[in-house]
Nucleic acid binder design. Sequence first.
DNA 1: CTAACTGCAAAGCGTTTGCGATGAG
DNA 2: CTCATCGCAAACGCTTTGCAGTTAG
Lengths: 145, 145
Amino acid sequence: MRETKLSELEKLCLEKGLKMTDQRKVIAQVLSESADHPDVEQVYQRAHNQDHRISLATVYRTLKLFEETGILTKHDFGAGRARYETSDDDHHDHLIDITSGQVIEFTNDEIEKLQRAIAEKLGFNLVGHKLELYAIPGKRGKKKE
Amino acid sequence: MRETKLSELEKLCLEKGLKMTDQRKVIAQVLSESADHPDVEQVYQRAHNQDHRISLATVYRTLKLFEETGILTKHDFGAGRARYETSDDDHHDHLIDITSGQVIEFTNDEIEKLQRAIAEKLGFNLVGHKLELYAIPGKRGKKKE
DNA sequence: CTAACTGCAAAGCGTTTGCGATGAG
DNA sequence: CTCATCGCAAACGCTTTGCAGTTAG
């Protein structure tokens, strides 16, 4: 799966005439290995840890590039900085635990359907959406921190 | 309705020991008269138009203050700047026409209910949410620009 | 070889803040 | 009077960019 993602990435780069530099390889790998939704600074630190030649500017440029090619998805969870995740095939929304910043992914077909219906009723074609639930752990069965 | 909102605002200011300056009055009025979801720059221009003594810094400070008192709601529709609207009693979500930036408000009880259910199923208590639909006008019956 | 890429440092952009002056209560 | 508030300009945090050197293809 990891290798799949990487070669897919390289394929895309070739298609676009992009060069597969060491920096891009490392950044791509960092992201494919990150289950959380890291912000730019976190990506930079993880990448820089593996290869000191990677600068913050390159991380910014690479993340933007990957986002444009559709490899990554950029999120704004409201803390001032952008956070990234690999664009999975299956769409999902996010629940943000405001006590820890942890992000939990979920899917719900019913909501998806409702959204399309609402847009159409208003005379629009839905091209994207953002659904974020901000919540605090319930009394029992809360996830361990 | 407009007067109601203003006097309500003044009441809140008194309660909090805030001073009802001319600047605040003008900014409050500008917002109560704005049906769109103006960004800070727009609020500043509309307010400054009515009273040249209003500075951008005061607009920022006042908007933040009003948001904290619950009079205003701040949104980030993803264009880099914050946008504001008066906190109406009835909750609503937003559909953003990405071709014009126009924002349309809507409500949907079913989605609200689903959101609470999803959070609970994940072991959380919902404390807030954000639902934004990004769309383009449909072929027919599009709103006039 | 050469266009794409990189690191660095400077600039950009929206927003916040320190300061001395002003004014509401 | 006194403390909240104001305007101004400097500072801030995140992100972008100009430039000269480097490198993949």
